[in-house]
Amino acid sequence: MSNNVIKKEWRFNFDFSVASGETYGRFFKGLNDKKIIGNICNNRTFYPPKPFCDKTLKPPDAWLECDGAGIVEAFTICCEKSNGVKFSKTDKKPDVPYVLGVIKIKDSEHCIIHFISGFETKDVSEIADKIEIGMKVKPVWATKREGEILDIEYFEPVI
């Protein structure tokens, strides 16, 4: 690099606002009431609901509801605190290591990504050993719920 350079710093600082629409809106309203809303679309079950079937592009057929119990299909143990990522409820920013899991709710044909917690250890290898693929988990609800995905604080193993 030549010495004749000049450093510049700047930021993207943008505020956005977006509407959920009915399909996702029903799901988030459900979270408020500790319910998981889904739907049936082209004979397939989805939690959270899908606004359309992406195989046929047809609209969904009916609404469904369940308690949110599901299974772990994949996970990773996050060991590095991300600098920039802000969680929408800052008090819930987890300490490392924490687990992000791919969770299939009931018989859903797609999955969600959420925290898995409740392992009583901070050792990465120990946590890795405690999580089995196909392990049953259930949502732990936040006391203060605002109709967003973090109304589920995390999923915990069903013992």
Binding site: F16, F28, A74, F75, T76, S88, I113, F115, I149, L150
Partner: peptide
């Protein structure tokens, strides 16, 4: 997305971890 994945801080590196685990 800002509804499901954004709020839990999901990013590229974590998606790699999931595939690597799988």
């Amino acid at each position: 997305d800002v509804y499901f994945r954004g709020p839990v801080g999901f990013n590229a590196s974590q998606s790699y971890g999931m595939l690597a685990m799988d």
